[in-house]
Design a protein around this nucleic acid. Structure first.
Lengths: 154, 154
DNA sequence: GGAAAACAGGTGTATATACTCCCAATTAGG
DNA sequence: CCTAATTGGGAGTATATACACCTGTTTTCC
């Protein structure tokens, strides 16, 4: 055999963005595997949780809170609406539509909670609480790099 | 003033994965805006760079190096192949296909380089070199969480 | 040397994400 | 009040990402 069919190591790219994306891919796998029994992805769980924490919201509002493009969010809701985990009803302003967590959505959250918790604990154990806290700080600064109209929140 | 129709702030989710994804979305925007004149996305630039650094590679190899699913990578190559920035030719082993950077690909890299550099400098300036270096350390550990067969590289 | 295992890739499908363009409803200005 | 600007959202399109399943090729191993 020639010197090495060795496992190619991820070449350290100097690009902050690529590194972040790579790490995001990796950790998404971990959470999605953990959540698989619920049929929820971590992205979906995240949306349901926002609704639980903050109550019914308009589409655009939910998008802003999650730093997601409005149209992207709209599409992310499709599978959740299809499974009736959220309901989308017209708001008082005839332009708007309100997203609400349904009873099934709440139930799905409840059943996903321990699985999420397990994954989160696993990550915390393996990375370490303090390093994670540092990480969160930097990530928040990075979010502020988003060229969105929202800008820094006074 | 009533409490606030204020700009909804991104609610701090306790989920490491969601936070990483959010930050990745935000910073991706920054790089993609910077690279827009070249018609390259940061994801595409990243692939071209890997090819430049490491030379022609098989599909699966390029996927592994980038911690990307093989089929995802395969599809990511489509727009690059369509623009003839990469060429995909059969390898010696009749099962394999080799991806190579074309002359146009090299040219595209050259024209994107200063734009990427500007974005990267901007990020470095705003976040700070030392914090970025810390970040890279944690991100690397997070990559190791990937439930891939590659596992830790001895 | 032939059959089973291992390997490299592709296709179908589903979700995630963002941009551009478009429409309807509301609000601002006069 | 009426028009123009603003706002909320949808549809079309393109890329990014992964899984399950399938096909063809090479290796292994007897």
């Amino acid at each position: 055999m020639p010197p090495a069919a060795a496992v190619p190591s991820p070449s350290a790219s100097p690009c902050t963005c690529s590194r972040l994306r790579r790490a995001a891919r990796a950790i998404t796998q971990l959470y999605d595997v953990a959540l698989a029994p619920t049929g929820l992805r971590v992205t979906q769980l995240s949306l349901l949780r926002t609704l639980q924490r903050r109550g019914p919201m308009r589409i655009g509002e939910l998008a802003t809170v999650n730093l997601l493009d409005r149209t992207a969010l709209s599409r992310n809701l499709d599978p959740l609406a299809a499974r009736k985990l959220v309901a989308i009803v017209p708001g008082r302003d005839a332009r708007t539509r309100e997203v609400t967590l349904t009873r099934q959505g709440t139930a799905a959250l409840a059943s996903a909670a321990p699985l999420w918790d397990h994954a989160q604990r696993d990550v915390t154990r393996r990375i370490g609480r303090s390093r994670l806290d540092e990480l969160y700080g930097v990530l928040q600064e990075i979010e502020a790099l988003h060229p969105s109209p929202a800008g820094p929140i006074a």
